[in-house]
């Protein structure tokens, strides 16, 4: 047998031997989140030529950056469809970067929705609601890739707290709490409690909020917002007078 035949045989052998090694390395690196998640075929079909070429050329991060810039220029022109489309591809190309999910959601839930509200010739409640809902969807999709991102929970809490009409304090509170549990600043734990205090009839959430605010109060964090909401929750939960805080109601509550 000639050398080139041996070479061909060795090439096939290397090809077969490498398969389990590739699988093992891929499993390890994916588990450690070193590799970007593989795109599903359904997602690829929506990526277009640019996204597909990027994913096959190893330039996902760079193309995602380019798409972000392109979305920003569409944002300048208030072309919300293009903004959503380009940010949609950018987030799928670089799904582990929470900044893209965060920005994509802000573009829809804040910028597009506010534009819809301020343009009398376009404004309808449905259009405003559509953009807010889209922003929420983007953040929820982002959380499927990054369930522990405090930034996405924080933003989702902000959106649920202020953007839908009417707002959803229950969801807002839950996401503020998750944001705090995943590393956000303590103000978000307090804000979770403030949201729970807004609920009309939810004793479980009230108790959760009461426990949080009691803790803040006990450690000396006697901010006007803490006192106001603690008093609200004391009333809602019918806390005995002896166990209520002695402070008077602040003149104007602040965070």
């Amino acid at each position: 047998m000639k050398s080139r035949h041996w070479g061909l045989l060795l090439f096939l052998l290397v090809g077969i031997v490498k398969l389990p090694v590739e699988h093992r390395v891929y499993q390890h690196l994916s588990a450690e989140e070193v590799l970007p998640p593989r795109m599903e075929v359904g997602v690829m079909e929506n990526l277009g030529q640019m996204g597909l070429a990027a994913s096959l050329g190893g330039l996902r991060s760079m193309v995602a950056s380019g798409l972000y810039l392109s979305a920003a220029s569409a944002w300048d022109e208030k072309d919300w469809g293009s903004v959503d489309n380009r940010m949609g591809i950018a987030t799928r190309l670089d799904p582990r970067y929470d900044g893209y999910w965060d920005n994509a959601a802000n573009f829809m839930a804040y910028d597009a929705a506010s534009w819809a509200r301020e343009e009398p010739e376009f404004y309808t409640q449905q259009l405003y609601g559509h953009y807010v809902k889209r922003g929420i969807e983007i953040l929820q999709q982002g959380l499927t890739y990054l369930p522990n991102s405090y930034r996405l929970h924080q933003n989702l809490g902000e959106v649920f707290s202020a953007r839908p009409q009417p707002p959803d304090p229950k969801q807002a509170g839950e996401h503020f709490l998750l944001a705090f549990q995943n590393g956000a600043l303590p103000v978000y734990e307090r804000r979770a409690a403030y949201e729970f205090a807004k609920l009309a009839n939810d004793p479980t959430s009230w108790k959760k909020g009461y426990t949080i605010l009691q803790h803040h109060y006990a450690i000396g964090n006697k901010l006007p917002g803490v006192i106001t909401n603690l008093k609200t929750l004391e009333q809602k939960l019918n806390i005995p007078l002896a166990q209520r805080i002695p402070d008077p109601m602040p003149p104007q509550s602040r965070r």
């Binding site: 996902r60 582990r96 970067y97």
Partner: peptide, 21 residues
Amino acid sequence: DLSLFEAVDAVVIGKAVSATS
């Protein structure tokens, strides 16, 4: 499988890569 070396995306977003990886 060249996708095994696509650690750049993780590194760019500031993710720590372990020595084992």
